[in-house]
Amino acid sequence: MQLRYNFRVYPTPDQQVALAQTFGCARVVYNDNLRAREHAYAAEVKLSDTEVQRRVVTEAKRSPERS
């Protein structure tokens, strides 16, 4: 027997702001990751997940506009 539950969340205005910031940051990191993989693919270089993380996430943390 399979059960399924549906939940609905009603965040407060402060929580909505925090969620929007979190999802915005995740979208930026994903886009940076995708861009790095596309450049590597065009250059015929194979990147591991660790290498992408080092290039994208670590460098983004070091930049003043992304900190």
Rank of each mutant, 00 (worst) to 15 (best):
V28I: 09
Y5H: 08
S48D: 12
G24M: 02
E44H: 10
C25T: 07
E44G: 07
Q2S: 05
P11M: 00
K61Y: 15
T50E: 10
V52C: 03
S67Y: 04
G24E: 06
A20G: 01
D32V: 07
Q16E: 07
E59F: 06
R66K: 11
P13R: 04
L19T: 05
S67T: 04
E65S: 12
L19D: 05
A42G: 13
P11D: 00
N6G: 06
T58F: 05
V28R: 07
A20N: 01
R62E: 14
A18E: 01
A36S: 07
L34R: 15
Q53S: 15
V29D: 01
S48R: 10
S63M: 11
V17A: 08
R54N: 09
S63C: 13
R62C: 10
E59Y: 08
A20R: 00
P11A: 00
R54P: 01
A36F: 04
S67A: 06
R27A: 11
R54S: 09
Y41W: 14
V52Y: 02
V9C: 12
A42F: 10
Y41P: 02
A26F: 04
N33E: 02
D14L: 03
Q16P: 00
H39C: 09
C25A: 10
Q16I: 01
K61I: 14
F7Y: 12
V52P: 00
K61Q: 15
C25S: 07
Q53I: 05
L3D: 13
G24F: 02
N31G: 03
V45G: 10
T58D: 11
P64T: 14
L34D: 14
E38A: 14
A18N: 01
T12Y: 02
A40T: 12
P64Y: 13
P11K: 00
D14W: 01
V52S: 03
Y41M: 13
M1F: 12
E44M: 05
H39S: 09
D14P: 00
D14N: 05
V52W: 01
A60V: 06
L34Q: 15
Q21F: 01
R35I: 13
T50Y: 08
L34I: 11
R55A: 08
T12Q: 03
K61A: 15
Y10L: 03
A26W: 03
Q21W: 01
T22V: 03
Q53W: 13
L19I: 08
K61M: 15
L34V: 14
E65I: 12
P64F: 12
S48P: 04
A20Q: 01
D32I: 03
R66Q: 12
P11H: 00
A43S: 11
R37N: 10
T22M: 03
P64D: 13
L47A: 03
M1L: 11
F7C: 08
Y10S: 04
S48L: 05
A43L: 08
E65K: 10
N6Y: 08
Q21S: 04
R54T: 11
Q2A: 06
E44Y: 07
V52A: 05
H39F: 13
S63G: 14
F23T: 10
A36G: 02
Y30D: 06
S67P: 00
S48V: 09
F23H: 08
Y41G: 15
F7T: 13
M1W: 10
V45F: 11
E59L: 10
V57K: 05
R35F: 15
V17N: 02
P11F: 00
A40C: 09
V17Y: 02
